[in-house]
Amino acid sequence: MAKLITTPNIADADAFYAALMAAHEGCSKEESDALNARLVLILANHVGDMNILLQALELARQKA
């Protein structure tokens, strides 16, 4: 079974984070919620593997 990557995997983490913030710039809460939902759907399709997606959902559900 394929495993979710749980080590850093984005070469320039700061650049990604900045891009994520920029994408939400000027959005209302409602628009940001919609954008996030679209982003989840686009990324989920890219991943494709149901096992990976379930592991990611499980990890995301864990609270600090």
Partner: peptide, 10 residues
């Protein structure tokens, strides 16, 4: 509803 609408929008 947010996710449903996101699917339809996309």
């Amino acid at each position: 509803r947010i996710f449903r609408d996101a699917v339809l929008d996309l």
